[in-house]
Design a protein around this nucleic acid. Sequence first.
DNA 1: ATAAACGTAACCATTTTTGTTACAAATCAA
DNA 2: TTGATTTGTAACAAAAATGGTTACGTTTAT
Lengths: 163, 163
Amino acid sequence: MGTLEAATIFVIGLGICNRICYINFMQSCRFAFAVHVMAVLALEKAHCCSSSRLAQTVNTNPVVIRRLLIELQEAGLISTLRGPRGGALLKRKPGKVTLREIHEAVDQGNTFGTHPNEPSQGCPVGKKIARVMERIQDRTNRALERELARMTLADVLRELQSE
Amino acid sequence: MGTLEAATIFVIGLGICNRICYINFMQSCRFAFAVHVMAVLALEKAHCCSSSRLAQTVNTNPVVIRRLLIELQEAGLISTLRGPRGGALLKRKPGKVTLREIHEAVDQGNTFGTHPNEPSQGCPVGKKIARVMERIQDRTNRALERELARMTLADVLRELQSE
DNA sequence: ATAAACGTAACCATTTTTGTTACAAATCAA
DNA sequence: TTGATTTGTAACAAAAATGGTTACGTTTAT
């Protein structure tokens, strides 16, 4: 009896433990996927690259890639072709694509979340905190964008080849 | 024998979980909650503020606040007192607390997530993309921290009063 | 005509996150 | 010392977010 309980707890403990190992990787990986995809397309140059091939190198499902491709397309970074020999193509030279553009294409870009429920309007802080946080958010979002704008896809390719 | 080992692993698992679970995650409102709480404590000055009162103005549960208070405490930003008339107290003047410190206390601060599954090691991009993304991550994280370090709790109070 | 590829909807499983209840430990005051 | 108050913490509920999967219609090159 005592042994059974111990075993049960152990399983729960392991479950939590597994989550810990994943926690560091479990934010949205859309930006990482997008940079990866754009880098592959840049190396392919004029050749179309299908969602299946992209999915293989990223190690995910083709539909996940296709969803990403739609957003990169809407941002004007790539174009896609249907039919046999179809796939995705870079629209600009790698030196003309900033990581900021890739980020904006696939990620909403807020650096932190805000109050899910309206704070107490009776408290002087609660009444006005939302507007203050909004201003902080604007500043941090812009800082992130500035830094991403300083890097291009060409820099990524250079680093990929230099190691 | 097997049971003993199981119990040991369980304890380790839980210990790790409690630390990481409370310190991680990105699109959460923990930073907004923490700034809110710190602003209320700053206005209260020498008066202890209980988790219940803080929970009311933030509009959440006292336990959510207490979990936050533990991290702010570990970061050296506040101290707490148990018992009647207990609660939380700011340890420094608002002008000496940067938003970067609050952010670091409560949020791990990764600006984006990375590949959840290992990319194909057969592809020149898949093989090296992780290290490249790591460097990009470092740069964007630092950019975020720099911007947050330029704002203090005193600035937040000023904005709260100026509107 | 056929096969290959995208576009898209629907759904599942897992993870993440806040919120909630409950209770032990600490502490103050009468 | 006793009782009330508050933190600290475990456990779990509920919902949201996310990636992954299957399926199928549409487009297009050969």
